[in-house]
Write a protein that binds this DNA or RNA. Structure first.
Lengths: 111, 111
DNA sequence: ATTGTGAATCGTCGATAAACGATATTGAGG
DNA sequence: CCTCAATATCGTTTATCGACGATTCACAAT
């Protein structure tokens, strides 16, 4: 009845060393899945995959969302690593990080 | 500069009829990804896949979380369809819904 | 150096997730 | 019928998301 809650509270950062790898894998998968866990971000990812070359804020034009909102989603996608952004003159070109995408696919496929 | 925000506000439920399928696919993928977008839920899914047969609240024993919290995650997994729960006597057995899992894999793989 | 445009950030708001403890609920068995 | 154990649900708290408008930042080009 006492639930091993202490495990969470007392030693959050150092783990038991045994299942560490699995846990990290869980978090890795969760993080990548999280990036794609919103319709708008799925849409963006699809857009970027479609145009093999990079695109910039024309993403905004393709979405029924405010520019700032799209920018937020792009930020999340960038943080997950699924998307990369390069500054190209006055605008920013985004493109898919194929490696990360492959990682996501692998992690999901090997479930 | 006026952003087509109206699109969202005025006609949220009926879409242009063209990209409807794609949009639904986006939401489908997002919903399934969402189920797996949390380490604890990834863990649970892995547990259930591991034990091909159903398991019950021994899931709780495997997790450093309170019983109620695990129950919440299970609820989310159930709502996504990834997991099914059957009442088996005093306890509840959970098992993976292989079809949904396959759907998730397919949707991700076909990105 | 100034301006103008595309993009990121800030601040806010409402909604929802995540976690917990406490309280219901359910079904087996005495 | 009552009890016990396993789950689910409720209620609360804190943190985060998602969306927006407004502002700021960065860079090319004049």
């Amino acid at each position: 009845m006492v639930r091993k809650t202490e495990t969470t509270k007392s030693k959050k950062c150092d783990s038991s060393a045994v299942a560490t790898v699995a846990l990290q894998s869980d978090e890795r998968l969760a993080a990548l899945a999280w990036a794609v866990a919103h319709p708008a971000r799925v849409r963006i990812v699809r857009l970027l995959i479609g145009r093999d070359s990079c695109v910039c804020g024309e993403i905004v034009d393709e979405m029924p969302l405010a520019q700032s909102t799209v920018s937020q989603h792009l930020k999340i996608l960038k943080e997950s690593g699924l998307v990369q952004g390069e500054i190209d003159g006055p605008r920013v070109c985004y493109c898919i990080n194929r490696e990360r995408l492959a990682e996501l696919k692998l992690l999901i496929a090997s479930l």
